[in-house]
């Protein structure tokens, strides 16, 4: 069923709250992966608040849908989202990155409630997600597994080992999503290590693949439903903007990781407000 306008507006309001919270957390933490958190947050919000079957009071519910943030450096965005879901107190985000805190750049699944796998070393998440999907089939469970990868991490050979195996084992209840923000630490992806023709690569590995605007809730929701309905493993390439919503960071690979002071934070918050209004207007006008 397509997303209704009201649902999309609610998701955008949630995403807006989280974008502000990511900026705040980056200030509290001293620095953070602002760019990659803002590029993937819309997809994460859509999954957690619309598609995923989870129990906010029981993080270990065996039937829950799984979510693997393979691009673990976006942990500052993921922690904000988990706190909004109630898995951890929002107040705790103020201790992000502090010595002795249970919250750091790459979230530790054994410490942070709601995190299905400790990630950070790139190119690992898709294999872990595949293991969860296979375990689900093995145990006749019906949960789905979602894995968000960064595009840069697709330089890792292990990603393609996993893609090959997803196809071989026909892991249809695993959905691979790639946050295609076209940027990595040292520059644009195509300058550092070209990925194109990216979608064709996934198709060649046997995954039904669509490219979709990773900041468009309607388009993403439809693509996810199409993927769910297929009797074939699927991959969605989410075309996104690194640092989306924050003018000074938007589309700039140099904002992969950085520090912001109070003044830059104010600029970021203002910019996010404008971005939110533009997105709401676009939705209502559509």
């Amino acid at each position: 069923m397509p997303l209704s306008l009201d649902q999309a507006i609610a998701l955008e309001k949630k995403a807006n709250e989280l974008r502000h919270l990511i900026v705040d957390t980056t200030v509290w933490a001293g620095s953070g992966h602002l760019g990659g958190s803002l590029s993937m947050i819309d997809a994460a919000v859509l999954l957690y608040y619309h598609f995923m079957k989870i129990d906010r009071t029981n993080t270990d519910w065996p039937e829950r849908d799984r979510f693997i943030l393979s691009k673990g450096h976006a942990g500052i965005g993921y922690a904000a989202l988990l706190s909004d879901l109630g898995f951890l107190p929002k107040e705790d985000l103020k201790q992000f990155n502090l010595t002795g805190s249970y919250l750091g750049i790459h979230l530790d699944g054994n410490k942070v409630p709601g995190v299905d796998a400790s990630t950070g070393s790139l190119g690992h998440g898709l294999s872990i997600a595949l293991g969860m999907a296979l375990a689900g089939s093995q145990q006749q469970k019906t949960y789905r597994t979602y894995c968000i990868l960064g595009d840069g991490e697709c330089n890792e050979g292990s990603v393609w080992e996993a893609a090959m195996a997803i196809s071989q084992f026909q892991a249809n209840r695993l959905l691979t999503l790639v946050d295609r923000n076209f940027a990595m630490i040292d520059g644009p992806t195509e300058d550092v290590m070209g990925l194109e023709p990216f979608a064709d690569k996934w198709r060649a590995f046997g995954l039904y693949t669509e490219e979709v605007d990773g900041h468009d809730f309607f388009a993403m929701a439809e693509a996810i439903e199409r993927a769910h309905d297929r009797e074939q493993p699927s991959c969605l390439i989410l075309n996104t903007i690194k640092g989306a919503g924050v003018d000074f960071a938007s589309g700039d690979y140099r904002w992969h990781y950085g520090a912001i002071d109070e003044s830059l934070a104010n600029e970021a918050h203002h910019s996010l407000d404008v971005y939110h209004q533009q997105r709401l207007s676009a939705m209502k006008g559509a």
Binding site: I128, L130, G131
Partner: peptide, 19 residues
């Protein structure tokens, strides 16, 4: 297949789900 990195990753995901 000949893909040990993937094998250990899959094993990790499976163990996380109780196997």
């Amino acid at each position: 297949g000949i893909a040990e990195q993937n094998m250990f990753g899959i094993a990790s995901g499976m163990a996380k789900c109780g196997l």
